[in-house]
Every structure is written in structure tokens, then in C-alpha cells.
């Protein structure tokens, strides 16, 4: 290298020694952090006070709730993991051969807690067997059975 080039190299690296750490530091400082917010919900149902039965599974926690008189029933579904299917519909098994003919409970989407009212008819035996069904791919994802 000729002397001019050697000098140029030195100057370039003196500049880089100043500019690069500043650039790295500033870029690190400006990394944005998305603040947490309360998620919007159209209707939040108050949870019934009595936990009748509960199952804690890997992907979800499922709880059957009721009131003191056992006249109101509720399904509390905590979706713990991100769903990997296009649709997840909960049916309550009523014996129909066609899954879609079973009693529709509702649909779960993002992670979080969902509550669904369960129909209670006096004198009729309650079924607490549920099917998680992918309506789009028409396949059963899971089934959960609470023994009476």
C-alpha cells in the first residue's frame, strides 16, 4: 500500500470506531416495545361460582361450572395454545351420528378464556361429553368426556 492509502485506512477506521458503536447503540435503544392492552370482548359472562368438574390438559383447561342450585351450567374453556387448525367448534355430544348435528356450544379462536352457557333441562340427564371439531377440514380434533 502507498502511504496515502495507509492514511486513508487509518482515518476510515477512526471514523468507523466512532460511528459504528453509536449506530449499534442507538439502533438497540430504539427497538420498539409493544405495550400490553386489555383485549376487547363484546359480552363477558360472569363465571358461575361452583366448579363442578375440571380437566387440565396440555392445550386447554376445561371446567364445568354451575350455581349453588345446580340449575345453571356453564362451560369455561381456557385455550392455552395457539390453534393450528382453521376452525375449532365445540359440540356437546347428543348421540347424533353426524357430528354437526350434535349440540353446538360455540367456537374458540385465539388463546384465552371462553365461557359458554350450557343448556339444562330439568329431569333430563346431562351429557358432559364434548367434541372439538374442525368445521372446515371436517375432522375431529379432540374429545373430552366428563364422567358423571
Amino acid at each position: 500500500m502507498i502511504k496515502t492509502l495507509r492514511k486513508r485506512h487509518l482515518r476510515v477506521w477512526i471514523v468507523l470506531a466512532i460511528v459504528l458503536p453509536i449506530g449499534i447503540l442507538l439502533s438497540w435503544l430504539v427497538i420498539p416495545n409493544q405495550a400490553a392492552v386489555k383485549l376487547l370482548q363484546s359480552h363477558e359472562q360472569p363465571l358461575l361460582p361452583v366448579i363442578w368438574k375440571s380437566k387440565d390438559l396440555i392445550n386447554y383447561q376445561v371446567t364445568i361450572r354451575t350455581n349453588q342450585q345446580h340449575k345453571q351450567w356453564q362451560l369455561e374453556w381456557v385455550n392455552k395454545k395457539i390453534l393450528e387448525v382453521p376452525s375449532t367448534v365445540i359440540y356437546r355430544v347428543n348421540g347424533a351420528a353426524d357430528i354437526a348435528k350434535n349440540e353446538l356450544i360455540g367456537r374458540i379462536e385465539t388463546r384465552g378464556s371462553y365461557t359458554f352457557p350450557l343448556q339444562w333441562i330439568a329431569g333430563k340427564e346431562q351429557s358432559f361429553q364434548f367434541i372439538l371439531y374442525d368445521f372446515i377440514h371436517q375432522q375431529i380434533i379432540d374429545s373430552i368426556n366428563f364422567q358423571l
Binding site: 349440540e103 360455540g106 367456537r107 343448556q119
Partner: peptide, 15 residues
């Protein structure tokens, strides 16, 4: 809007 059925309380459900 894909209709998935009515629940026991008569509410329609859609995807």
C-alpha cells in the same frame, strides 16, 4: 361467512 349452526339457545354461529 360460513354458517356452522345454531346453538341450543338459537344463536347462529359463523366463521
Amino acid at each position: 361467512k360460513v354458517f356452522t349452526g345454531n346453538d341450543a339457545f338459537g344463536n347462529s354461529s359463523f366463521i
